[in-house]
Design a protein around this nucleic acid. Sequence first.
DNA 1: TAAATTTGTCTATTGATATAGACAACTATA
DNA 2: TATAGTTGTCTATATCAATAGACAAATTTA
Lengths: 249, 249
Amino acid sequence: MVGRLAADSIERRSGVSLWRQIADKILQAIAIGDFTENAALPPEVALAERYGVNRHTVRSAIAALVQEGVLRAEQGRGTFVLSRKRLSYPIGARTRFSTGLQGQTSERHIVLLASSIEPASQRVAEGLGLARGAEVIRLETRGEADGRPVSRAAGWFDARRFAGIDAAMAETGSITASLARFGIDDYLRQSTVLSARHADAADLADLDLQPGAIVLVTVAVNVTPDGQPIQFSESRFPAERVELKLSAL
Amino acid sequence: MVGRLAADSIERRSGVSLWRQIADKILQAIAIGDFTENAALPPEVALAERYGVNRHTVRSAIAALVQEGVLRAEQGRGTFVLSRKRLSYPIGARTRFSTGLQGQTSERHIVLLASSIEPASQRVAEGLGLARGAEVIRLETRGEADGRPVSRAAGWFDARRFAGIDAAMAETGSITASLARFGIDDYLRQSTVLSARHADAADLADLDLQPGAIVLVTVAVNVTPDGQPIQFSESRFPAERVELKLSAL
DNA sequence: TAAATTTGTCTATTGATATAGACAACTATA
DNA sequence: TATAGTTGTCTATATCAATAGACAAATTTA
């Protein structure tokens, strides 16, 4: 089934280099739990044989993962798994950043990277039920768990209703707490649309990824319990570090 | 924003070739609605300039998408968009294949590709609440909409409780209808875990993809209204043709 | 009809990717 | 202390990916 390391399947002249494909497979095997932390990877020659490629090609894949901080290679001994399994990020009616990751990480927080006021684009206006061009506040945030970026999000709010939410966010470091200042005690996830793509230059910088990585993208609308839209957001998650757990369905 | 064609961001020596990255971006722009059906793409020289690559590199990307049936190039005239937007596949408490795609496609159905009886693997046993190694029935299916594959799934059922569900599935072409024969009138999605990866050889064949494509993967458990697990499943969706809409949370 | 625009084809060159083989350096173990 | 097993480095070669330039072929527009 999905991505056991035993899998055959390497595609030539696909536009994705063999070393990147093999790196992907190793990452997947780790995420799935085929290798626990500190476990030794099979030796390079064995991997090369398994995938039907040259040993040097396997070495390129391993070099990329060492660079990425996932593996550690020791001459004469072997190559070992450093990283933990993927975080399981919950998405449901009451998705909240920090509560969802409890138990999986010792530390997590949201950093406000930037904020601005801008006219609403077509899709933001639709999501928030505003006229196109109406003023909205945009908050750019990054979610971090144990010091590693696990999400990068842009959130839009009606500028008239939520004037000053940028300052509140900077102060509290929490969307939930910031909304509470505007009398929003509870909010629900109304809709979420999910897609995946290759990371672009912005993703690489924002999420500290290596080129060629895959990102999961969610576009969501949060509403008050009576259905009034309050937040439109687009979030990006590194597929190699995060899986999305759809809960409370 | 996500993948406006205006975006800069092409990564060199990433292990993903420039032509594949550009093909991805064009696909995304189409999916997002930047190009409607039959619309003309910008000329090759303009695309080359926009992405900062040679015209021949853009041509490689276009050639791949022509091969894929997404674009049509006409000498002297231009390059045109053939394919429709991505399907929006709903996932929620009551996810059903054919009801969910109503209105988006004129035709849709599930094909039973294979079935077998096998001992439950660790994760299947966990999902179904069975002992590891207990007999389970595996159904391999493909979802098609307007003749194009939009999903590829494996579903596992307790072999004792659902003996003969493979025949029922072959006959009815519907999981819901097959379960009804065993007295299951209603079932709910208990959990869904979502990830993304590069397509492997099996995905390419199963979903009729070109090498280098991305697949979304869901692993889910369906339960009866009183919480009894009845189905464990793993589904793969071509990210270029399908987005997942998380609904009714 | 002429000019401008656009895709198609060809040649040539450079750099990244992948293969092949040999051997050094380091570690663990018989 | 050999020996086997493993990662690290080097050279060489072939193929793919990307750049560069020129011109042909088809279509649209002035």
